[in-house]
Write a protein that binds this DNA or RNA. Structure first.
Length: 205
DNA sequence: ATCAAGATTACCT
DNA sequence: GGTAATCTTGATA
């Protein structure tokens, strides 16, 4: 990492705070994965959704602990990765403390570094146009494909060296849009989707 | 053992 | 705007 103050890794204390606070503050943060050959893939988080098993029927943790959702019941600052629709992985950042069952789904990322490798991961080619760049990681399944995140990353400690977040300037409240969540059929009324206003890498307007 | 649902995406009209 | 693709998981028997 560099000497820039902005290259400071987020601490455990950042993640163990209250769910909706963490969800909104994750916007604008830099998401980083270091691959085995030390290649850096990174991007800016531009869209998230909050899930809270204590009150939210759409959360995987609503009906209690299972082998699948075990990581989401752990301490904040770990990655919860799940497989869905037989094809896609989605990644979440666990928040709060043990046994709370709360996490933030990362729904869209603006690619910053390692774009060539992301293009290979997503489209099997090493050059892309502007339209394809906007389509690279603007969805939870897409960003996992671009970043090469699979179930082997489930439970990864975000204070470690494989995947982590770097602090950035907080997005001001007036630039955060709040809406209902996408792709769910229960607790649809909760306004727990957050995204950066006017950002072209958000999944759905 | 069987089965329906799913925090999605790509492609079609 | 509609829908097929694809398979793990958790619930039920």
């Amino acid at each position: 990492m560099g000497k820039n103050i902005k290259d400071k890794k987020l601490s455990r204390d950042f993640y163990t705070r209250e769910l909706l606070t963490v969800a909104k503050e994750l916007l604008g943060k830099k998401f980083v994965r270091l691959s085995n050959n030390n290649l850096m893939l990174s991007g800016k988080i531009v869209e998230v959704e909050a899930y809270d098993g204590s009150v939210d029927q759409a959360a995987h943790t609503f009906k209690g602990k299972t082998p699948r959702n075990e990581v989401m019941f752990g301490q904040g600052g770990y990655l919860y990765v799940y497989f869905t629709y037989g094809m896609y992985y989605c990644c979440n950042i666990v928040t709060g403390n043990e046994n709370e069952g709360k996490a933030v789904l990362i729904r869209a990322i603006e690619p910053l570094e390692g774009i060539v490798q992301m293009a290979v991961n997503r489209f099997q080619k090493d050059f892309i146009n502007d339209k394809e760049l906007r389509n690279l990681a603007n969805g939870p399944g897409k960003l996992c494909m671009a970043f090469g995140i699979t179930k082997e990353y489930n439970g990864t400690d975000l204070l470690g060296e494989r995947i982590f977040l770097l602090d950035q300037k907080k997005i001001p409240e007036e630039n955060i849009i709040s809406t209902t969540r996408i792709g769910i059929t229960k607790s649809v009324e909760l306004p727990w989707r957050f995204y950066i206003k006017n950002n072209p890498y958000v999944s759905h307007r």
